[in-house]
Amino acid sequence: MPVSDKTQGLLTRWTGRVRTAGGTSKAAREQWIKAQTPRKHVRTALESMTRGAVRCMYCDDSRGTDIDHFQPLENAPLRAFEWSNHLLACSYCNSNAKRSQYPVNADGVCLLVDPSAEDPADHLQLLLKSGLYDPVDESARGEETIRVFGLNRPDLVKGRLDAFVRACSNLRDWHRLHQDADPEAGRLAQALLDSPFIDVVHAMTRLKPGVEATVVGQATVPALVAWRAAHRLSFRVGQPRVCGGAADTNCIDGVVDDTLAGDDRSRVGGRSNDEPVIAMQNYGLTWTGPTGTPRSSAVAYDKPSAQDRKAALERVGCTSVEIVAVRPGELPEPRG
């Protein structure tokens, strides 16, 4: 999501100041400290996109209090005022967990998932019964992201386990209201989507039919099926989102409300009972990962989002990337 021309102009001018001051990390830090007005503009823009109560874009638990440079000033001083390098983080994720870490591979490619440019679910999967994140297919980027951001620290694990219990109960309540066409269903859905650890709910929607009863319990399955049909997941590259892997998009009855943990809080239409109109996405992607593993998207996209996703995958070394038209409720299978 681009910032206003005024904000971008400010950031460009302050980048020039860093360059004039020598372009070093010391110069970048000194100019960043002085730049009260640009920092205010960046914070306002980031807060306008965050989910729920201005949540951290890394852990999705605590309040986002700090502007973090995804690529640290020590590595890229001239990105100090680059809009795409800014994310809103809680003080723990920023100062205790990530700090100035920025691991790269032998080719210099960053090993952290950039939640503003790619789908974290391609590298991270949430195990609902344990509350832990695991890397997808032993993804090195998944492993490093979990380590650097401390995604499996005890407080987050407990928070996800508690959120899972609440989500099962809330989904059953929502389902009863939804079946009765009660306007309260929409408000309950929004409250659930704005709650901490929304990655738990999105991980539930990804469960395959053969295992969902074992994970969520048979009593919750009908509610989960109805929720999955009403709340399609979508991801548009370039929107800051929750780094914890599974938080794709805030949707109410399928209407995209893009989040990393962030969104633009836009809505598409609405019913007289305050529940928005369903707008289903109908494209998926298949590709071969950098390690040669056939992959497919775990979420559905609209056509522009699918094209953006295709470009992002190709940028990180994926091959045979194809956009596949799918029916609502379906996703493509990996092609070997």
Results as ranks from 00 to 15, higher is better:
136 V>T: 12
81 F>C: 06
268 V>W: 09
291 T>W: 03
119 D>S: 05
261 A>L: 11
306 A>V: 10
80 A>Y: 02
256 V>R: 13
135 P>F: 06
175 H>L: 00
107 D>S: 12
184 E>D: 13
5 D>W: 00
185 A>T: 05
205 T>N: 01
23 G>F: 08
323 I>D: 08
327 R>G: 06
53 A>H: 07
14 W>L: 08
43 R>Q: 08
293 T>L: 14
158 K>N: 12
213 A>K: 13
56 C>F: 05
256 V>K: 12
112 L>Q: 03
31 Q>P: 01
187 R>C: 01
138 E>W: 06
201 V>F: 01
15 T>L: 08
80 A>Q: 05
234 S>F: 03
282 N>F: 10
124 L>Q: 05
248 D>P: 00
52 G>I: 04
326 V>D: 02
302 D>R: 05
239 Q>P: 00
30 E>R: 13
131 G>T: 06
34 K>Q: 11
247 A>E: 04
277 V>I: 15
269 G>I: 10
236 R>G: 04
212 E>N: 10
96 N>G: 13
206 R>T: 15
320 S>E: 13
184 E>R: 15
310 K>M: 15
251 C>G: 14
270 G>C: 09
243 C>S: 11
112 L>W: 02
278 I>R: 15
197 F>S: 00
37 T>D: 06
117 A>W: 05
193 L>N: 02
316 V>L: 09
333 E>W: 03
79 R>K: 12
103 P>R: 04
131 G>I: 07
108 G>K: 03
11 L>K: 01
56 C>Y: 06
118 E>D: 12
21 A>S: 12
225 V>L: 14
295 R>C: 14
65 T>A: 09
168 C>H: 06
16 G>L: 06
139 S>K: 04
9 G>E: 08
230 A>Y: 03
189 A>M: 13
211 V>M: 07
250 N>W: 12
259 T>E: 08
270 G>K: 07
6 K>Y: 10
233 L>K: 01
163 A>G: 01
254 G>V: 07
70 F>I: 07
58 Y>V: 14
302 D>P: 12
18 V>T: 05
207 L>Q: 04
60 D>T: 08
149 F>W: 06
49 M>V: 08
209 P>I: 03
325 A>F: 02
81 F>Y: 06
47 E>I: 14
260 L>H: 07
78 L>M: 11
297 S>C: 04
261 A>W: 01
259 T>H: 10
23 G>P: 07
38 P>V: 02
312 A>V: 08
145 T>M: 08
158 K>I: 08
143 E>V: 13
320 S>A: 15
153 R>T: 09
236 R>L: 09
40 K>P: 01
237 V>D: 02
122 D>Q: 12
